[in-house]
Design a protein around this nucleic acid. Sequence first.
DNA 1: CGCGAACTTGACTGTAGTCAACCTGCGTGG
DNA 2: CCACGCAGGTTGACTACAGTCAAGTTCGCG
Lengths: 236, 236
Amino acid sequence: MVRSLLTEEEQHAILALPIQELVLRSKQDYLHINERTTYACLVASGMVGRFGQTSEGVRQITAFHVPGDMADLLSAVRPVGVGGINALCETMVLRVPHAAIRALASRYPAIAEAFWRDCMLDAAILMEWVVNVGRRNSQTRIAHIFCEMAIRSSGDREILKEYPFPVTQEQLGDATSLTGVHVNRTLRALRDVVTLKNGSVQIHDWARLTRVGDFDATYLTADTAPEQQKRLLAAA
Amino acid sequence: MVRSLLTEEEQHAILALPIQELVLRSKQDYLHINERTTYACLVASGMVGRFGQTSEGVRQITAFHVPGDMADLLSAVRPVGVGGINALCETMVLRVPHAAIRALASRYPAIAEAFWRDCMLDAAILMEWVVNVGRRNSQTRIAHIFCEMAIRSSGDREILKEYPFPVTQEQLGDATSLTGVHVNRTLRALRDVVTLKNGSVQIHDWARLTRVGDFDATYLTADTAPEQQKRLLAAA
DNA sequence: CGCGAACTTGACTGTAGTCAACCTGCGTGG
DNA sequence: CCACGCAGGTTGACTACAGTCAAGTTCGCG
């Protein structure tokens, strides 16, 4: 919730939410496509992918979620059309009942807005993914995802030169709409700039990576508006 | 706001929002990419497209908005990363100040949730677009968009056999990540099922169109949960 | 040590892109 | 009222990026 300003009381209220730990095995589907749920899940460790699929069962990953992300917060207000969720490696999630989230949002408008804003960051990323998959070639697509995940995995710190990204080349293809074979060839072409090995991304040249990846981090940045923008205005 | 249940008082409060009418010429950019705004806009008539673009300026439409849609409601809580907005034909929009939206959301939790839910429908559509652009061939892609817009243009009525869709083949290509030339060829191949002419889509065979378009409307359906799901639970 | 998942490589194919020419219909201005 | 211009649509020939298929190879784990 670093993306919004909350008072201590609000922060305590969030930390007091009832949670239930759940450990997912690598490759385990946590939420099946079109499944309805009454919990939202916070990724505590590991990594999950959200995905959609065609009627033929071909999967398309639509989002990656790192520790700290609510992977399906949107389901709290709209439990349909969330897509499936799949653990990319052994992952611990904390399940929070929708009812508790909604009750909290009702009581604290600033929390409602913080949740809403969090969902809107996801939406901005999704828009960027449409552009990525639709308009960029294989090198740019993959480099772009590596840039995005570098920023998101680094939190407020300096950009990490290496970060965990426990996906197979096949899964990276599911995220970029490429085949595993072509991901492999593309990674080879990028090897001077970035490598994916043992479930980690190693960035050798960040400047070149952002250039190849046609990457501008604006869409990921926290709101840079005046501070009060991060909180709801007092009720009129 | 038909997607949520609101009391009369809440409905009146929404209708009392300060608005400012604005008429956009066809092809006019209303919001430039990366532009920050302090208004959200409701489409009153006509049609707009939201778009992203690569650094080379190639555009990718990420959403269409029909009358009744808030095209950039998400900007109320997160004014960055919205992308650009372009009028596809002469369009009237109603601009509503972010401040008013946020004040209303703060005062009426059910309205906050209705706004949030509305944004989440957009997000669900966006996920479907990633799948569409990433995983489907040209015929399926175009047919899928035609299906989506048929449902959204029909509102609660029966599905219209003809509905306004004032886009050029080139713009349809910008939405489906195809070139204008290929859109043209694909439309020809689909002409027994659906045609795009004079700014309207004519559906000749809805059953076939959904089959060709690999279309399942679940992601667009209003929440089918028990009624109270459509409103925030009373504050604990 | 042996199995299987993931990765690697090569040869060939196919869908959609590119380029270029031409057609059509509409709105404007002479 | 006609003619011009132009945006949008249509078609053909050729190209290219990524997909497909198939045969290895490597590596980690039981």
